[in-house]
Design a protein around this nucleic acid. Structure first.
Lengths: 115, 115
DNA sequence: TACCCTCCCTTGTGTCACAAGGGAAGGCAC
DNA sequence: GTGCCTTCCCTTGTGACACAAGGGAGGGTA
């Protein structure tokens, strides 16, 4: 049974990852930490969600990857936003806001409160 | 390839239907018109989306149905909110708003703009 | 040595929006 | 009455994807 959180993540996962990488190259673990922090722990990225998403974004050319070494001296794959990825974010983020706002408005019209 | 609109709908479809029925009993066609109107046509309910959703909500006990006659003198199945459905809406709607807001905030932090 | 944390990945499962199909019946123009 | 549009209901097949649950490896610390 799909819940609200899962599907909201589904609607914004790509954007959140692109946004995270807008701050600079980052490895998967770092991205998941960024998302958790940026959403006050309301959204948690499971690994089985995150890594397929990263591969998907890479296949589509929004990001590229490169092996490196993390701050903790561990082997890590660093992802970096491509020009196309940046453009993608700039094009899609406003759409997300517009649609989310439209839904928010629809859900708020007073009706149930009067019952 | 899933797009923003589809997944935002996915996250809010049940709530939108429950909300529509908060205004009173309505048939499927009417619900889809209500959603279209309430979201400024940003969200369109395909029939292959709407009817399975209605049956799903009915199975879960949030709504009940009854055959009747529409304003246009046509056979129509009218859906009505149950007490459980009303409670469901009141419990879930705030969660939707909370999570959507958290994502909105995360997506807005200035970073890409500086590149 | 033992354990936790960081970091990467995969397979299987279930859910679901959507496209594309079908059907029936009212109203209206000609 | 014939044709067509609109309203109203439904189903099947398909693809996409979050998640749970698994596995692995290496660093740090006690």
């Amino acid at each position: 049974m799909a819940d609200t959180e899962t599907d909201l993540l589904r609607s914004s996962l790509d954007l959140l990852v692109l946004k995270a990488l807008g701050w600079g190259p980052m490895h998967g673990y770092g991205i998941s930490e960024w998302v958790e922090g940026a959403t006050a722990s309301l959204l948690l990225l499971e690994e089985g969600t995150l890594y397929p998403a990263l591969h998907r974004l890479e296949r589509r050319g929004w990001i590229t990857s490169e092996w490196g070494v993390s701050d903790n001296n561990r082997r890590a794959k660093f992802y970096r936003l491509t020009t196309a990825g940046r453009a993608r974010f700039r094009a899609q983020a406003p759409l997300w806001h517009r649609h989310a706002e439209a839904i928010a408005v629809a859900l708020r019209r007073t009706s149930l409160e009067t019952a």
